[in-house]
Design a protein around this nucleic acid. Structure first.
Lengths: 333, 333
DNA sequence: TTGTAAGCGTTATCAG
DNA sequence: CTGATAACGCTTACAA
């Protein structure tokens, strides 16, 4: 148990007949080492199976190379897609991702951030929930960079990446109208996050500008099952809607399945449907869902770019565009 | 830039009027500190915003608290579900997950393991790919624990968690026969991983025992699109199969959609389909797919249990059972 | 129970 | 380019 585990730079130095500094420099990009020394060090390192201890390096450099990813509902298509993209880009930038799952229990975002602090993460990227301001201030004060994705909070000093959720509404209203829809509805979850609410408002406002009312129904969590319930609620109304904008693709999938199976509705002939996120399943033949694409790659790129940029803790905000993806769940005009 | 960032135990000690050791002990569960000292330390720590530096702690204790999760295709339903479960269980066990995405580029599993070594991870859990033996040996020699999930490699000293993939075959053959199917087919990807091949062999062998031949088709990667291609190949045969076992649910979804849309096949009346994994979408109304459930929770539990258990580097193997999930993609007998 | 002092594996500084 | 030496923030004997 008290075994000496990993080999240290000391042992490599000894074997190579050089000083520890020489070893350190060999593994520090851009440090000045003679080719000969480097060769001997590398040889010894390989033979001994030496790998720089990033815990110790982080201690010295005040830079751990760790980026903390704070996220809930990891198993959801959109979240996992974003997660995948972020980890890839981070790795390409020479960082490593620490994943903190905030499912279950409230205030866990704060706990997650404390974890980030304990491991001296260079940055934290928050994809779910909203942290308490006192703790984000602590992060920032400690020199940790902060990125908030699709959380419309006015955290000073953090990078906030948001979409043009509100604008999506008018685009989709136009599409519905062109398809001949007149009885519009918005299917939302009860989560009430800023993104979801912005989509709702944008849709309602755009419809109003064209003289149309929108029936709004909200239920449950943002998943397939909630979409089923929303379909039952909306399709049993006296005035059955003929154009439904679902706040997310997952809702839309549940909605479409239930509309077809339980109400024998034909899509898009009798009912047009749109979603938001452009998850994998939206392209599946059972759905062919018209939707708005989360610019997953751009989000990740922006986040990582900001991390790489030197320390400039100004308030910063990036607004990205969600591309309209046209599929056959809405009749062509 | 040369700003002094985080507060250290020193500063807390000074403010509380005690020694650094007292501070350290206060944050070490089970150390002996008088209630009065503890109180004063906590007070000072809170006021200053102190958080133990786990980099330094890991350095001393030879135990970082980090567990490295090595995985590719993170955005896939099964993978993300497993990832979610694992991170949760790890957190409950007081560990923190470091996520390494091995998409793109070969030999990246080895690179991932080196990352784990550099951060002195207490353990690595490998969900994708196969590492080189030399590097896993290095991990083990360095006291790092290793878990391989669904990779049937005979790495000595690692925990290997596997399913009864082979056995699934006979169960599904029975179900197909009871449904009256006589022309069986197996739809596989070209990935050729041990799990996939075991499912294939198990199915073929079980059919043979009952005097039936199995048509096998393999194509592409284990995703929805490959399922579409496989459907086209299998359903254009002279003898069209009437019972198809797909190696994964994702393949099955693509298969079903194509069977219905491009070949107007009615499921399950004219064609019975089964999958493997029990992803979310398998329960969606468009599929109602009969399948085998990856025991995601058990897998995570076993993995974490092994990590918690003291250092006992025996070869170890856990065989878990994939429950049969009956849905309507197969006719009732 | 408490404080002192040594040490973990690095890197940064500074002579040479 | 190289090597000694001093940090980094923490834990842990050991002694008081």
């Amino acid at each position: 148990m008290t075994a000496k585990f990993y080999v240290s730079a000391n042992e490599v130095a000894e074997r190579a007949g050089v000083s520890r500094s020489a070893v350190s420099r060999t593994f520090t990009p851009g440090a000045s080492v003679s080719p000969e020394t480097r060769r001997r060090v590398m040889e010894a390192a390989d033979a001994l199976g030496y790998h720089v201890n990033h815990l110790a390096r982080g201690l010295m450099r005040n830079e751990s190379g760790i980026v903390c990813l704070i996220v809930s509902e990891v198993a959801t298509p959109y979240r996992s897609a974003l997660l995948s993209m972020l980890t890839q880009k981070l790795q390409n930038a020479g960082k490593v991702a620490m994943l903190v799952n905030t499912d279950r229990s409230d205030g866990s975002v704060d706990r997650a951030l404390k974890q980030a602090i304990r491991y001296r993460a260079d940055a934290s990227i928050i994809m779910s929930g909203l942290p308490d301001k006192s703790i984000t201030q602590l992060c920032l004060k400690n020199g940790q960079r902060l990125v908030l994705i699709n959380r419309d909070d006015d955290q000073v000093g953090a990078l906030r990446i948001n979409l043009d959720d509100y604008e999506a509404g008018s685009k989709i209203v136009t599409a519905f109208l062109r398809a001949g829809c007149r009885r519009l509805a918005f299917a939302n979850s009860e989560a009430g996050t800023p993104s979801l609410m912005a989509r709702e408002r944008g849709f309602i406002d755009a419809a109003k500008r064209l003289g149309l009312d929108v029936v709004v129904e909200r239920f449950g969590w943002t998943g397939y099952e909630a979409g089923q319930v929303l379909a039952r609620r909306l399709l049993t109304r006296e005035e059955r809607p003929d154009g439904v904008f679902c706040a997310t693709d997952l809702l839309a999938c549940g909605f479409m399945d239930t509309a077809r199976r339980e109400f024998s509705v034909v899509i898009p002939e009798q009912l047009c449907v749109a979603g938001f996120d452009n998850i994998e399943q939206a392209a599946w033949k059972s759905y062919e869902l018209t939707t708005f694409a989360q610019p997953v790659e751009d989000i990740a790129t922006e986040a990582v770019r900001w991390l790489d940029a030197g320390p400039s803790h100004d308030t910063n905000r990036v607004q990205l565009h969600a591309d309209f993806v046209w599929r056959s769940s809405i009749r062509a005009g």
